[in-house]
Amino acid sequence: MKDVKEAQADVLSVGADAAGYSRGFEQAKARILKGSNSYLVAAFVIAFSVLLIIPMWAAYGALFPKENGGHSHGAGESLSASGFEERTARFIEERRLPDGSVRADHDKPIYVLATQYSFTPNTIRLAAGEQYDLQMLSTDVVHAFSVQMGDTSYNAVVMPKMVTALKLKPTKPGAYLVVCNEYCGIGHDYMYFSVIVEEAEAEEHHEMSKEQHEEMSPKTKDREHGEHRHGK
């Protein structure tokens, strides 16, 4: 009934005479519906084309195959903070270097504890080309793990009571800043740590020179921040 009225108004608006009214009205109605509906159908087709993104996920998997699938930080393990703290302390004790940094072992998990407003350990050394298991837990509030890689970043949430488990494989040596990007309180801006990726062969030299240790030590980083960005 509504369409009839609308079509009638359209016919009147183009000034159809009374004799041709009925025929003109029927024609106009047919034209309006046919004309507009084909564009409406086209609009539906275009709108539903956003679903073309779904096959892109498969194409991405084929283009960049990953040893452990392409998905990150799936459901984590539920763990008490004290249990995780113990594991972190043991990991640090076993792998600590004289400068306070920790050199990770690719066949053992890396443990990182997030607490207002620091990460423990605060410097981790990895070897390029190796794959590592990283596990993180917060002891208090929700934090995040945001790895800065020069002009891009990787971001994951670190929660209390739920372990964030990641696999990571560094390919380029460099020093990477990791910041908390989930507001965790007034000191949030000062919560960050470093991941240092070394050449694969460097891992064999467990003893670094004193100069190198000083360069990487947290106290001197403030002065040498330029070198701690990921250089290409």
């Binding site: 020069g150 891009t152 910041v179 801006d189 403030d222």
Partner: peptide
């Protein structure tokens, strides 16, 4: 955001370690 700047952070310098961009 693509360059990694965190949201909800007052001071994004991170003690001078942040990328210049």
């Amino acid at each position: 955001g693509y360059a990694g700047v965190p949201r909800r952070t007052a001071d994004i310098s991170f003690g001078g370690r942040a990328p210049e961009s």
